[in-house]
Simulated scan of single mutants.
Amino acid sequence: MIEFNVQDMTCGHCAGRITKAISGVDAGAKVDIKIDSHTVSVQSNASSDELAEAIKDAGYTPQLRS
Rank of each mutant, 00 (worst) to 15 (best):
S41D: 10
T61Q: 12
N45R: 12
G59W: 01
D57C: 04
S47A: 05
K30H: 04
S23K: 14
Q7F: 02
A27P: 12
D57H: 06
D36S: 15
K34F: 00
R17M: 14
A52P: 00
N5L: 12
A21V: 11
M9H: 06
I18K: 01
S66N: 13
D36A: 15
V31N: 04
G12R: 06
K20L: 04
C11W: 07
T19M: 08
G28C: 11
D32N: 15
A54I: 01
L51D: 03
H13G: 15
G12D: 05
S41W: 08
N45L: 08
T19Y: 04
G16L: 15
A54Q: 00
R17C: 13
S47L: 06
L51K: 03
A27V: 13
A15V: 05
D57I: 10
K34N: 12
I33Q: 10
S44F: 07
K34L: 03
I22D: 01
V31S: 09
S47K: 05
V40N: 04
A21R: 13
T19C: 04
M1R: 14
D8V: 06
S44E: 01
T19V: 03
I35L: 10
K20V: 01
I18E: 00
S48H: 09
Q63L: 05
F4Y: 08
Q43G: 10
I18F: 02
